[in-house]
Computed example of a mutant assay.
Amino acid sequence: MLKRVKRLLPVVQMAEEAERDAAAKLAKTQHQLMHAQSQLQGLEQYRGDYQDQWQKQGQMGVSGEWLMNYQRFLSQLETAIEQQRNSIKWHQQNVDKARDLWQTAYTRLEGLRKLVQRYQQQAQQLANKIEQKDMDEIAQRLGLNRQRHE
């Protein structure tokens, strides 16, 4: 029984390494997603500030050229925001894939750990049975020896 456990230990170690790698990749993709979300928030904040500036400037009167520049820049900003939203979707998909890979690696590792534990329990039970058998034999011999001396 212990031989099976010893043979499985390298497999368990490899599974532990795979699970750690998958967890690290998941953490990295989550960090990238959070960074992309932060960038989107910054762009949206900048757009809001820019629109506030437009309203203030518009109250004082603006030239046609200023208005065209404003609209062109706002259009570019909207394009950047849309691209960032697409980036967030892409990063979210990466997080989902990384989470699936980690869950698979974790499930495999836990299965191997349970198998090793079961083998260890079986080995312990076998050792206990052998020890009990030995103790019974010793007790039986001692009993026979006492009967002979009486």
Rank of each mutant, 00 (worst) to 15 (best):
R113Q: 13
G143P: 13
D134A: 05
G143Y: 12
V116A: 05
Q125I: 10
Q140L: 01
L126R: 05
Q121A: 11
R118G: 02
Q122H: 12
K133Y: 14
A139G: 08
M135D: 08
V116N: 04
E131V: 14
D136V: 00
I130Q: 04
K129T: 12
Q121T: 14
N145M: 09
E131S: 12
V116S: 10
G111P: 00
V116M: 01
Q117F: 10
G111Q: 04
A139M: 15
Q122F: 08
R118I: 06
Q117T: 11
G143I: 01
R141E: 15
G143F: 05
R146K: 11
I138C: 03
E137H: 08
I130V: 02
Q140F: 03
Q132H: 05
V116I: 06
N128R: 14
R118M: 12
R146L: 14
Q124N: 13
L144W: 04
N145I: 05
Q140E: 15
Q124I: 15
Y119W: 00
A139Y: 06
E137G: 01
Q120K: 02
R113L: 05
R146P: 07
K133R: 12
I130M: 01
R141K: 15
A139D: 06
Q120R: 01
L112N: 08
D134Q: 00
L115N: 11
Q122W: 03
A139T: 15
Y119A: 05
Q125H: 13
R141M: 11
A127L: 13
L126T: 10
A127F: 09
Q122E: 12
G111K: 04
M135W: 10
L112G: 02
Q132Y: 10
R146N: 09
A139N: 13
